[in-house]
Amino acid sequence: MRVAIVTGGSSGIGQSAAIQLAKRDTAVILTYSSNEAGAKDTVSAIEQEGGTAVALPLDVGRSDTFAAFRAEVVEVLRGWDRDTFDVLVNNAGFAKTAMFADTTEELFDEFFRVLLKGPFFLTQTLLPLMSDGGAIVNTSSSSTDRAEPGYSGYATMKGALVVLSRYLAKELGPRRIRVNSISPGATRTRLGDNGFERYPEMIPVLAAKTALGRVGEPDDIGLAIAGLVGEDGRWITAQNIEVSGGFDL
C-alpha cells in the first residue's frame, strides 16, 4: 500500500486527487484549512469505497507550523506500519484577482506565503519522510502562459512553482523521486470565493474558449494527478503538464 499526502483535500482538485489516489490502493493523508466539513466528506467518500484516509489541519501559509505537522504525519504513518510516504501533492491555495496597479504588498505577500513559500518549505520539511522512488506534483495554473488582466500576482507565484518543480526534479533525481507540475485551465472549484456559483454566466463564455467545449471538472484534474504519480507516469519528470481541455487555443 502506498501513502500519499494531498494538501487542500477538502474540496475541488485536492478532494478529487485524494479520492482517485485512494482508488489506486493508496492511503491518503489530506489536509484542510478552514473547510473541516469538506475534509470529512473526502475521508467518508474514500472509506465508503474501502479506502483509508486521515484529515489533518494545515495552513500552508504558516511555515512555522510545518514541523508540528510533520510530527502528526509521523504518528499517522506509525498507525499504518509505515515510516515513510510515497506521494506528495502540493495543491492547497487560493485565488484572487487584482490589477497590477491595485495589487497591495499585503496581497502579494499572501500570494507568496501560500502559493510559493508554503509548497517550497513544506516539501523541504517532509522530504526526509519521503521514500526513494516517490513522486511530487505541484498544482500550478494555465494563467502562467496566458496573460489575463488581474492575475499578475497570482500567476507570478504559480509560474515560480513550475520553475521550482524543475529544480526539485534535478536535485531529487538521484533518489528517483519524480517531480512535475500540472496547470489546470478554467475548472469548476471553490477558488475565487466560489466564483462559478456567483457568476454562472461566465461558464458558457469559458466553455466557448475551450477546444473540448466545456469547463473543467475537478475529476479531470484529479485523474491526471493520480495517473502522473502512478506507474503510468514512471518516466515523466521535470514537466509542466497543462490539463485544460485546450483552453484558449
Rank of each mutant, 00 (worst) to 15 (best):
T52M: 05
V60Q: 00
L122H: 11
S16I: 15
F100Y: 01
N91L: 09
Y32G: 04
W80E: 10
L206W: 07
I182S: 11
R62L: 01
S140L: 14
A147N: 05
A98D: 06
S142H: 06
D25H: 10
A101V: 02
L168M: 15
E49N: 06
K23D: 11
I136C: 06
L161C: 12
G159Y: 13
N91A: 08
V28H: 08
T189V: 11
K170M: 14
I5F: 04
G153C: 06
V43D: 05
P119W: 04
V54C: 04
L127D: 07
V179C: 14
Y199P: 00
I203T: 05
E36Q: 14
S181L: 01
V229Q: 03
N90F: 01
A27N: 09
F85T: 09
D102A: 01
D41M: 01
S183Y: 00
Y199T: 14
A18M: 15
G12Y: 03
A186Q: 08
K158T: 14
Q20N: 12
A55Q: 07
Q20S: 11
N35H: 00
A4N: 06
G216Y: 10
A186H: 08
A186Y: 02
L249R: 09
A224N: 09
T123L: 07
Q124T: 13
V205L: 06
M157G: 09
Q48I: 03
V3P: 01
A160M: 12
I182D: 11
G79L: 12
G9L: 04
D109P: 06
S141L: 11
P184K: 11
I46L: 03
G233Q: 08
G185H: 07
T31F: 12
E36A: 10
V87Q: 05
A39D: 00
M130Y: 00
D219Y: 12
T139N: 14
S244F: 03
Q20R: 15
A135Q: 01
A169Q: 13
T187M: 09
A155N: 13
A4C: 05
I46R: 03
A224L: 12
A71C: 04
V3Q: 02
L164H: 14
P218T: 09
E148P: 00
V162L: 11
N180H: 11
N90C: 02
R178L: 11
L30F: 08
A95M: 14
T125G: 11
A67N: 00
I236G: 02
R198A: 05
E148K: 09
T97V: 08
L77S: 07
D132I: 03
R113D: 14
L30Q: 08
S165T: 12
R166H: 15
E49W: 00
R178G: 13
L172H: 03
Q124K: 15
P218G: 06
E36R: 15
L88T: 04
Q48Y: 01
S10Y: 06
F121R: 13
P149D: 02
F121T: 08
L129W: 10
G185S: 02
R190N: 10
A186L: 04
G246M: 04
F247T: 00
